[in-house]
Design a protein around this nucleic acid. Structure first.
Lengths: 225, 225
DNA sequence: GGCTATAAATAACG
DNA sequence: CGTTATTTATAGCC
């Protein structure tokens, strides 16, 4: 607009990138910078025609999200990487490593391969108990026949299962990649979940934490390039 | 730094926020702005001590992500909203609406409530067939006893189940919130998954798309405030 | 990938 | 939440 008064503000001051101590100040900064971040994201979407999802938890632990076209679908794409394992670009090192891991797993795999058959049969059995007649496998449960409570129960179950799988997947990779590692038996891994290796994401040694030139402190944030 | 030559660059030019037509140019802009976005995110993390996850799919559909502390755990928190349904701030309207939905569901719910018991029993049965003795419920499957194939199968199953649930959850809400809606039977909903309403996220009329003051074109992006 | 001039974001204040 | 003085991000080049 038009400047009527001059030199009436000290203007923007440089601030160190450290945790802001003053709480009210922090709240203001959070709001402004969150808006800025979302604006930048929207511009990137428009300029480049790409999909972006952002999830931010406020200092008060309230969830803010930005998504184009939709947070959930982007998360879905992220959690379900396109299974074209042989991509064209320079992922060969990744592939080699993954194949190596598979090779190392072969013993275990052979040892329990027959369980897969049992698994399928049990799937069909569960299917039967789930009282549906047309579904062939256990994940095709008759969702329409379930009510809210059932759905919530199912959700919780899946979350638990996911955590379980992630935990043991991490454990398994640790066990075979290093020294036998402090195994706590089948108990909870002491180091949280870890990456969902069994889901095809971030095998520990495959994707390095890349710091984007001099931009960001590499020790504190996780990237995937 | 020190300027040795002056006026040797045209400097930054204003560009319209529209899709960049020139492809090479677009690639450069994407890289630069993605770096900038991630830097902003990291600064917001540090300044305000908050958790952020960003997922970006490049024009070539490659996934880039930023997360502090970790993309997966933040996604987890986002998809599993803290079940303290009675929060302090002004979520009352949300609560009212949610309760209304629950009320509407009550008929269905009562009609099939007994299935919950059956569900539990079947869980235990599945547990038995999964050959574990200490686990009490079906989601506590003995992951350590599974091999890579089994885990991958499990992953796929869960993904299918998730899609299944999301699909029918959307359908269910549509059916009860509006006119009977074009029901395609139990077939795939024509409009993709839709939000995972049954999971406690984004009931259609509850969270409005809020445009952050004049910052972002409100019609194209999805926020949750 | 680096440089520079300029546009845009934002810290401090009202 | 609006203004202003600055810092920061980045478009156009090499």
């Amino acid at each position: 607009m038009i400047m009527i008064k001059r030199k009436c503000s000290s203007g923007r001051q440089k601030i160190p990138i450290e945790k802001i101590p003053k709480k009210s100040h922090l709240q203001v900064t959070f709001s402004k910078r969150r808006s800025g971040l979302f604006k930048k994201a929207s511009e990137l979407c428009t300029l480049c025609g790409v999909e972006i999802a952002i999830i931010v938890f406020s200092p008060a632990d309230k969830a803010f999200s930005f998504g184009h076209p939709e947070v959930e679908s982007i998360i879905d794409s992220y959690l379900t990487p396109n299974s074209s394992l042989e991509s064209s670009s320079g992922h060969q090192l990744v592939e080699v490593h993954r194949n190596a891991n598979i090779g190392n797993l072969n013993m275990q795999l052979t040892q329990i391969l027959n369980q897969l058959e049992i698994e399928k049969k049990q799937g069909e059995e569960l299917d039967r108990v789930w009282k549906t007649r047309q579904s062939k496998f256990w994940w095709e449960i008759p969702v329409p026949q379930l009510g809210l409570h059932e759905l919530q129960h199912l959700m919780f179950s899946m979350e638990e299962l996911k955590k379980n799988v992630a935990k043991y997947a991490t454990q398994m990779l640790m066990d075979q990649n290093n020294v036998p590692a402090p195994v706590n038996g089948p108990g909870p891994a002491p180091n949280g979940f870890g990456p969902f290796d069994a889901f095809g994401h971030k095998p520990p040694q495959i994707y390095a934490n890349v710091n984007s030139s001099t931009l960001i402190n590499p020790s504190a944030f996780n990237f995937r390039y």
